[in-house]
């Protein structure tokens, strides 16, 4: 076991990791941050997406020891300082961008990277960027709508099941 220290959501946090300990397991089991979900564990579904030094990665395919010292943001770090949902999270709620919610942490983390790179994406750009995030419930339409709304674009005439 080796000690791994990360800055998670602005706080320095440490835990023990074996060589094979994945960042997803380290966050969930060592640090108790269970908002990061593990859907497939095979790098396909994107439920485990977190930001490492500002970049979206699939935490089930990153070794904890390989990111020693990194700045990590998880879904627990996305809310506003007063605990209320941030604009993107609120848009998921307002536009029914989730049903069971399993994919949602990864969707929010991936979508927030998109908006950081491209603050006013087209619908096609949103769909393309979220290619690595799988949702088994919503059919994606309202996820895309939520991301468009969070970017400040008018979504009032998008046809969606509400």
């Amino acid at each position: 076991m080796t000690k791994v220290t990360l800055t998670v959501n602005g706080r320095s946090m440490s835990g023990q990791a074996e060589g094979r300990t994945l960042l997803s397991s380290f966050l969930r089991e060592e640090l108790g941050l269970t908002g990061t979900h593990v859907g497939c564990d095979t790098s396909q579904c994107g439920a485990c997406v977190v930001h490492v030094d500002g970049q979206a990665v699939k935490s089930c395919t990153v070794l904890a020891q390989d990111v020693e010292g990194a700045n990590v943001t998880t879904i627990e770090g996305m809310a506003n300082a007063d605990g209320s949902l941030n604009t993107l999270q609120q848009a998921f709620q307002d536009h029914h961008g989730l049903q069971c919610g399993f994919c949602t942490p990864g969707m929010v983390m991936a979508a927030s990277s998109l908006l950081a790179e491209n603050p006013k994406p087209t619908e096609a750009e949103v769909r393309h960027y979220l290619e690595g995030n799988i949702c088994r419930c919503t059919g994606y339409h309202n996820i895309v709508k939520a991301v468009m709304a969070a970017s400040g674009q008018d979504v009032s005439d998008t046809v969606a099941a509400e």
Partner: peptide
Amino acid sequence: IGDPMVRNR
């Protein structure tokens, strides 16, 4: 290649 997360790593 793949998706944004795959391209970041």
